[in-house]
Amino acid sequence: MSASEPVRVRLFSVLKERTGQSEILLDAGDVDSVGAALSALGRTYPVIADYRRWIRPAVNRAYADEDTLLKSGDELALITPVSGG
């Protein structure tokens, strides 16, 4: 991975709908952890701040938590529970 490659944030369900974005690119130099990424996203997209406690992050398709470190080129998926049936 080149150092300039961004962190690719993928949004699902409610977060995708409320932000109008399915994918957001973050500068890997600005966000070194999942928590930092969520804080940065929450500043731009208040809905992410609203949901933060219920978001299950996954880094490179593996379940992660707010302390999980991010590096250039990582994929961060933000998953929230849905209830419909």
């Binding site: 709908e17 219920w54 529970p81 419909g84």
Partner: peptide
């Protein structure tokens, strides 16, 4: 388990021996 929202769905098997449960994934309901 399965759940749906608009155009999306989630499916998993919870509570199997050694595997996670729904609370492991989502500790508390929104």
């Amino acid at each position: 388990h399965a759940s749906v929202f608009r155009f999306e769905g989630q499916v998993s098997v919870f509570g199997a021996p050694g595997g996670p449960c729904y609370r492991c994934l989502y500790p508390e309901p929104p």
